[in-house]
Amino acid sequence: MEQEILLKIEHLQKTYDNHTVLKDISMEIKKGEVIVIVGPSGCGKSTFLRCINGLEKINHGAVYFKNNCISDESLPHSLICQQIGMVFQSYELFNHLTVMDNITLAALQVQRRKKSEVQQTARKLLTRIGLADKENFYPRQLSGGQKQRIAMIRALILNPEIMLFDEVTASLDPEMVREVLDVIIGLVRQGMTMLIVTHEMSFARAIADRIFFFDNGEIVEENTPEQFFTQPSTTRAKQFLNSFEFNSVK
């Protein structure tokens, strides 16, 4: 275990108008690790991801990226976002731009990279997700699954060190879930460090190095996927997992 610690969260607390969403979260993520966070709706898992990349200000605690504190606003937000990529539940492509422009805009404007190099990289990424023929399409001409895959490579082209996925399949039609998850599986194979919030339990079990179970704004259980899905150590996790099971009613 000589892998370096990429992301360290210490006693993170987040409050909205007297309502505490995240109580006291601490977590360490090593380079190359795949962490999956599961838990009932409203348990604070999405807020947790948004606190990490600075979309939400935290009330207490600290977030460290490679031993640098990134939660005290000492570093420019733009710099943090280039290191920590994020993909959201709603496939939020920029509707006025083509697929190619969507993917390259941040690389060109934020990172000031050369256009020819960026476009070449973009085409490579598009080919990898099987959408090479769509570079001049507009978002409205694409399916939800296609848009979400493009949103992923739009984040990946910035060469982030860690990716945050916030329920990226939650608003997709079932037949499109697989194509999106396959992209993440591809990233696992490449050794990308990831923090994934999902409701896809068999997917979580297949790819996670560690599972965190959130409930009511706190980490209730941390476990290996095998242990968590077969013998969870807490009753709350047990109840949560049972809600995905159906007994025959006939």
């Binding site: 976002c81 939020e92 805009l105 941040a106 404007q109 910035l158």
Partner: peptide, 21 residues
């Protein structure tokens, strides 16, 4: 939509760039 602001911010755009592009 708020998503457009957020995804732009998450990609590292500054406020000015976010509005401009």
């Amino acid at each position: 939509p708020k998503d457009q602001y957020e995804s732009g911010t998450a990609l590292g755009f500054s406020k000015l760039q976010l509005y401009r592009f």
